[in-house]
Design a protein around this nucleic acid. Sequence first.
DNA 1: AAGTGGTGGTCTCAAAAAGAGACCAGCACT
DNA 2: AGTGCTGGTCTCTTTTTGAGACCACCACTT
Lengths: 136, 136
Amino acid sequence: MDSKIFNLKAKLEVYKAMTNGGNFADCPVRDVIQGISGKWSSLLVMALAEKPYRFGELRRLVPDISQRMLTQTLYDLQRDGYVHREVFPTKPPSVEYSLTDLGRSMFAPLQMLVQWAELNHDAVRAARAAFDAAQA
Amino acid sequence: MDSKIFNLKAKLEVYKAMTNGGNFADCPVRDVIQGISGKWSSLLVMALAEKPYRFGELRRLVPDISQRMLTQTLYDLQRDGYVHREVFPTKPPSVEYSLTDLGRSMFAPLQMLVQWAELNHDAVRAARAAFDAAQA
DNA sequence: AAGTGGTGGTCTCAAAAAGAGACCAGCACT
DNA sequence: AGTGCTGGTCTCTTTTTGAGACCACCACTT
């Protein structure tokens, strides 16, 4: 493990950036992270990274999202510049959502996290089970 | 841009993993991601990546977290195996929180996201401002 | 002609999560 | 005897989320 190098790098670059010089409360990094750390945000970004989807397609793709949260999460993602919304004058009008360049560039590091999750979900589940067993 | 290669890779590895074969609802990756996508989780992990902290130190470090949410978020992070909690028999007893190996390994990809946020928060804020201006 | 279904939403109301702040025991120091 | 620090829990209020009804419009079926 190169944890020494890792920690040094973390301290010098990341910590300094996120603390905003000792101020955790109004930190721009926090502002950005919170925009994508919602319950559905990352999931929708991951879906749209594959290809553009229409509203109803997304709803069917993610069966346990409420229509209300789908609307709102897409709205928020659009507002932050990750998602582009385009209405086609078909009948009935269809609405297509796609990732912007900013969204695609954000998906790159997000993908790292997803890959980590893919590799380590067994460890997480094991930790969870062990913890629950110890509590009982 | 190598967006073609990027998308292919995304489709083959990430999308397949997260869809769990077409099923977005019970996907282990989602389970893991949701555990770290809470409002305070990533922030606390980032803080603890720098060095271990005691409860009160974390509270002062993140002034706008309520004591209740600090307790609960640390509990959840401990349950998922990211954080180690150790009580020292001082008077009064002090409690130290630190990242486990799993927590440190998760911080690596999280750091990528933080670095992206650091580089792109201007773009996000600009998009937000433009969107709000267009709505008005 | 009257139903049926698909489009992308909004509106209302209930449930869950988060925030605010009081309270607690134990010990050190004054 | 009072004050402060430790790491919390408990209760109450506010915010966020979820569940589901409802909407207009049009195509297609019956």
